[in-house]
C-alpha cells in the first residue's frame, strides 16, 4: 500500500508498505526519520511519541495506514534549523539526557505539556510524563529540565 502524509511540514510518500507496519516503522525505516525510538513497540514506554494532527501519540500504536493524509511532527521537526527548541536545550543542560533513548519521546511529551500548561507544578509534570519510561535518570533531572524549559519560556513571554 502507499501512504502519503505530511511529516515535519513536508509531504512524504512511502510505497510498498505492508499492512502490519506501524507509523513508527514507516517513519524509521521508510522515511529516514529514526529519531522516534523503538523501545517497546506496544505503547508502554513513550519513546516513539510524535504529534499526529497536533495530539501526542505513540507512533508504534498507529497503523501506517491511519496516518494517510494526516500531519505528523516528530522530534526531528521541533528544531528550527540549527536552533534547539527550549525543551531540547533544557534537557541537555539539566543533565536529563544519559543514554538518551527515551529522550525524543520525552522531549515531544514535554513540548506538548508546556503548550497546554505554561507553569505546571511537579505533580502535573509527573502525571503528564507518566507514559514515558526512562531507565537511566530516575527522572529527577527530567523534572529539572521541564522546570528549566518552563522558566525560559516564561522569561521569553515576560521579556
Amino acid at each position: 500500500m502507499r501512504v502519503t502524509c505530511t511529516v515535519n511540514g513536508e509531504r512524504q510518500q512511502a510505497d510498498d508498505v505492508r499492512e502490519g507496519e506501524s507509523l513508527l516503522y514507516v517513519l524509521r525505516e521508510r522515511m529516514g526519520l529514526p529519531g522516534s525510538k523503538n523501545a517497546c513497540e506496544q505503547g508502554e514506554c513513550g519513546s516513539c511519541t510524535v504529534y499526529l494532527d497536533g495530539a501526542p501519540v505513540c507512533a508504534c500504536l498507529v497503523a501506517a495506514g491511519q496516518a494517510q493524509g494526516r500531519d505528523v511532527v516528530t522530534v526531528e521537526g521541533l528544531t528550527e534549523g540549527e536552533d534547539l527548541d527550549p525543551v531540547q536545550e533544557a534537557f541537555v543542560e539539566a543533565g536529563a539526557v544519559q543514554c538518551g533513548f527515551c529522550t525524543p519521546g520525552l522531549v515531544v511529551a514535554t513540548h506538548d505539556l508546556l503548550r497546554r500548561r505554561r507553569r505546571p507544578d511537579d505533580t502535573e509534570v509527573r502525571e503528564a510524563l507518566a507514559g514515558n519510561l526512562c531507565r537511566c535518570t530516575g527522572y529527577e533531572k527530567i523534572l529539572d529540565a521541564v522546570r528549566l524549559a518552563a522558566d525560559r519560556a516564561a522569561d521569553r513571554v515576560a521579556g
Binding site: P34, T74, V75, E76, Q88, F91, V92, V97, G100, P104
Partner: peptide, 8 residues
C-alpha cells in the same frame, strides 16, 4: 547531548 535531543 545535542544529537540526542534532536533525535539524530
Amino acid at each position: 547531548g545535542t544529537l540526542k535531543v534532536r533525535g539524530e
